Computed example of a mutant assay.
Amino acid sequence: MDALAIINKYYPEDNELRHILLTHSRSVADKALWIADRHPELELDRKFLEEAAMLHDIGIFMTDADGIHCHGDASYICHGYLGADLMRKEGFPRHALVCERHTGAGISLQSIIDQQLPIPHRDMLPVSLEEQVICFADKFFSKTHLDKEKSVEKALKSISRYGEDGIIRFNRWCECFL
Rank of each mutant, 00 (worst) to 15 (best):
G106S: 01
E164K: 15
Q116I: 01
D30G: 02
N15M: 10
I113W: 09
I58M: 08
D165H: 07
L49E: 13
L86V: 09
H121N: 14
L117T: 01
H79N: 01
E164T: 10
R169F: 14
A29G: 13
E100Y: 10
G67A: 11
C176V: 08
Y11A: 14
K89E: 10
I167K: 12
S142F: 05
L33S: 11
R18E: 10
M124P: 00
M124D: 00
I107F: 07
Q132S: 08
L97G: 00
G83C: 04
G72N: 06
D30I: 02
S108L: 01
Q132W: 06
C176I: 05
L86D: 00
A84M: 07
I7V: 14
G80A: 01
Q116W: 02
D2M: 09
D73I: 05
R26L: 13
A137Q: 02
I113C: 09
S27P: 00
C99K: 06
D2T: 11
R101D: 04
C174H: 12
L33D: 11
D165R: 04
S160R: 15
Y162Q: 01
H24S: 06
E51H: 10
A29P: 09
G72S: 08
L44W: 01
I119S: 00
Y162P: 00
L117Q: 09
M62E: 14
D138E: 10
F136Y: 15
I107D: 00
H121S: 05
M62P: 00
R169L: 04
V98T: 07
S27F: 01
V152R: 13
R122T: 12
D37L: 03
T144L: 03
I112M: 02
R101L: 03
I6A: 06
K9W: 02
V98I: 13
S142R: 07
R26I: 06
K157R: 14
S75M: 12
N171M: 12
H121W: 11
S142G: 12
A84S: 14
M87T: 01
L86N: 00
V28G: 02
S111R: 08
E149N: 06
S108W: 06
Y76Q: 10
T144V: 13
I7R: 07
E130H: 11
F92H: 12
S151Y: 07
I58H: 03
C99Y: 06
C99M: 10
A65W: 01
A53P: 14
K143M: 12
F141Q: 04
K150R: 15
E153A: 15
F140W: 04
S151R: 08
D138W: 02
I113K: 15
A155I: 05
L109W: 08
G80D: 04
A29T: 04
R38P: 03
C78I: 02
A36C: 14
T103C: 00
S75T: 09
S160Y: 03
L146G: 08
I119A: 04
Q116L: 03
Q132V: 01
G163C: 05
A3M: 09
C135Y: 06
D66Q: 11
Y76I: 11
A105E: 02
R101H: 14
D165W: 11
M62R: 08
I112W: 07
F177L: 12
